[in-house]
Design a protein around this nucleic acid. Structure first.
Length: 528
RNA sequence: GCGCCUGUAGCUCAAUGGAUAGAGCAUUGGCCUUCUAAGCCAAGGGUUGAAGGUUCGAAUCCUUCCAGGCGUACCA
């Protein structure tokens, strides 16, 4: 590192110097220098034990910030498919984690409920007649959109009508609005059903779609025009030119704020949304979870908002991108029928597989319990499969991998919790009363204790970097250590301080699992 | 063309510039008369796409290649 280089000391010497200066006798059992200059510190069991019984699980933020988390944000012209999983699940986990550490989190579901897609859709509905619109469920509308898009590409008159429909919506033409509202009601109902099934914390009040910024756009453009040299007309469109963005011809790539036909684009709504988040919601930090194709869009959005002073310089603007979902053949994911795999089909399949496994593993559970466990296991497995990866590039979707219930999966963590619950149930013990400091004589006990004490650090890391996979890795390692402890150390058959101390380890592990999985949006189970 | 991203075990993925690059799946072999075997223990499996460079130390940082993906003015 730079520091070591500046003082021109080799790491081994530095370690020796540090060791000579520190006095940790009351905390440390042994400390020695190893390898290139590591200080290996072995903490005293008494110190570990004291920390476990005297510290809270998680200290909350002393100075909470107002953090806006923009995630899920499906385009309602289409039914939600597996491509929506990442934004929804990762965004939700980060929102929950930020809340857990004490921040004031405002969720924003920036749904695609406006724009050209709806022009095509509504124009197509006009062409085929209202009858279809009356009984169209979302699956039909999904197909409608495909047909509308294809006609848009092949029929220039239809393309013109689609664009005219967009303008009709933007001027709030009554007929167009009625069609749009009918459609939106169906689509939002579908969206809510998926969120409920997925156990995602997004509620209807978090929905603030593109259409909700309609009234803000004209004033926004007016304000931009008041600022010298920000908005420039080019080929009839109003643009912001920023020299760091170049197009394929090496010229400056404009950010189009208003199209030559007077319409607006996603740039425009996002600028309005960002302004709203700062002016009205008073955001200190804004996080966006979208796929990686939008990287350039967000770079331009953030740069433009700085240029036009839409937000204070101190406000943190972060885009957290990720790759798209591919099939096993390495091509964008399609089901056999050629459609994208729908989210509700994935979830139903997951629950079905979990249910039949539970029937086999634990036939004693009654049907109600089985349903509850199946849901928690299935949803947990699907979410964890996504959350445990930190991948910016595309990732491969595989049914068997995503719906696996053993190994490094959510059910493994849930299983540990169920085992602990079973101990407390069998011993008729209240886990919240377990305060006996553990002895930590066995190496597996010490290993568990050390890891338990790192929860705070990991949660803070997730809150800072918006990467839930750190927490997944932590919880998995915690569970591995607990399982070793569980195999080697009898609990209920012991007596006195040994038994009580081990119960404390169990209690703390269960509480950590519950809080950690809760931050990921995954439920724990007393039985499974 | 230019820009951004990615390349790690057969597969899916980890690894604040640090120690012998780790997990899971799959494969092979053990462990249920004791708190849930969705578990535990063990084995095999690597030139981190390639080559240079910086550093006491590189999967990680820099340069050049190779391969793939995405973006590149009125879609989002």
């Amino acid at each position: 590192m730079g520091a070591a280089k500046r003082i021109r000391t080799n790491p081994r010497q530095l370690a020796t110097d540090v060791l000579a200066e520190v006095d940790l006798d009351d905390l440390v059992e042994s400390i020695d220098i190893a390898g290139p200059g590591f200080l290996n510190i072995r903490l005293k069991p008494s110190f570990l034990s004291e920390q476990l019984t005297k510290t809270t699980l998680l200290e909350t933020e002393a100075q909470p910030k107002c953090i806006v988390v923009d995630y899920s944000s499906p385009n309602l012209a289409k039914e939600m498919h597996v491509g929506h999983l990442r934004s929804t699940v990762i965004g939700d986990a980060v929102a929950r984690t930020l809340e857990l550490v004490g921040h004031d989190v405002i969720r924003q579901n920036h749904i695609g409920d406006w724009g050209t897609a709806f022009g095509r859709l509504l124009a197509y509905l006009d062409d085929v007649g209202d009858g279809l619109a009356q009984d169209a469920d979302l699956r039909n509308i999904e197909k409608l959109y495909v047909k509308a898009s294809s006609r848009f590409g092949s029929d220039s008159a239809f393309a013109d009508r689609s664009r005219a429909m967009v303008l009709a919506l933007q001027s709030h033409d009554a007929d167009a609005m009625a069609k749009w509202e009918h459609f939106m009601a169906l689509a939002q109902q579908h969206m809510s059903e998926i969120y409920t099934k997925l156990d995602v914390s997004l509620q209807p009040e978090h929905t603030r779609g593109e259409s909700s910024y309609n009234a803000d756009i004209a004033p926004l453009i007016e304000d931009l025009q008041k600022q010298n040299d920000v908005l420039v007309e080019s080929d009839g469109a109003l643009c912001i030119f920023m020299s760091q963005f170049k197009n394929k011809d090496g010229e400056i790539q404009p950010m189009i704020v208003q199209k030559s036909d007077g319409g607006y684009l996603y740039h425009t709504t996002d600028l309005a949304a960002l302004r709203y988040r700062f002016d009205t919601l008073h955001a200190d930090r804004v996080l966006y979870f979208t796929d990686a194709r939008q990287i350039l869009h967000f770079e331009m959005l953030f740069a433009a908002s700085r240029l036009a002073n839409l937000v204070e310089p101190s406000v943190l603007l972060e885009h957290h991108p990720f790759g798209k979902v591919l099939g096993k053949d390495g091509k964008p994911l399609k089901s056999r029928s050629g459609d994208n795999i729908l989210l509700r089909d994935l979830l139903d399949e997951a629950i079905e597989r979990a249910s039949s496994l539970i029937l086999e593993k634990n036939p004693e559970l009654d049907e109600t319990q089985r349903d509850e466990v199946a849901r928690a296991v299935a949803i947990g497995a699907v979410k964890y499969a996504d959350l445990s990866k930190n991948r910016l590039h595309d990732y491969t979707f595989d049914w068997d991998e995503m719906l696996a219930f053993d190994g490094n999966t959510a059910p493994y963590l849930q299983y540990a919790f169920a085992r602990i619950s079973s101990i407390f149930e069998k011993g008729n013990i209240d886990s919240s009363q377990c305060i006996e400091p553990p002895k930590l004589d066995m190496e597996v006990e010490r290993q568990l204790a050390v890891h338990l004490l790192r929860f705070q650090e990991v949660v803070e890391h997730v809150a800072a970097d918006a990467k839930p996979h750190y927490l997944c890795a932590y919880l998995y390692e915690l569970t591995v250590r607990f399982m070793r402890f569980y195999e080697q150390c009898p609990i209920l058959s012991e007596e006195g301080p040994i038994r009580d101390g081990r119960l404390t380890l169990c209690s703390r592990t269960a509480a950590t699992l519950e809080m950690g999985l809760g931050a990921l949006g995954i439920r724990v189970l007393a039985r499974m």
